[in-house]
């Protein structure tokens, strides 16, 4: 599956949004259309049975690598992982710090 297909970018988040959708596409094996249809309320951890702790760990590591941020373990909580909007807000805040 090609990994760099064009994906519509939401206004908020800019390239972080793009990268995040790409990582979710790669982790969840979704089509570009499915991942483009995710909105801020789309459920992640706790909503998708395949997204277990190992998959979340891999997801965060991949986000770190592609966005050049470091996520500390104590920053990982249910709230930031529960929805797409929560994860995007967290990632954007981390980038603003750096």
């Amino acid at each position: 599956m090609a990994s760099n297909l064009p994906i519509p970018v939401a206004d908020a988040g800019g390239d972080a949004d793009l990268v995040l959708r790409q990582v979710l596409q790669d982790v969840l094996g979704l089509s570009p259309e499915q991942v483009a249809a995710m909105d801020a309320d789309s459920g992640l951890f706790g909503h998708l049975p395949e997204l277990d702790s190992m998959a979340v760990a891999g997801l965060l590591t991949e986000i770190e690598d592609r966005l050049d941020i470091i996520v500390e373990d104590d920053e990982v909580d249910g709230e930031m992982l529960e929805t797409y909007g929560g994860l995007l807000a967290f990632v954007c805040a981390k980038r603003a710090e750096g």
Binding site: S53, M54, A57, T61, D73, D74
Partner: peptide, 24 residues
């Protein structure tokens, strides 16, 4: 270290889900 980092993180997340606090 990259392998270990992911596995430890998975353990911390799983522990938290189970109501246990653990630390890297």
């Amino acid at each position: 270290p990259a392998i270990l980092r992911g596995m430890i993180r998975a353990r911390v997340i799983a522990d938290r889900e189970a109501g246990r606090e653990s630390e890297r």
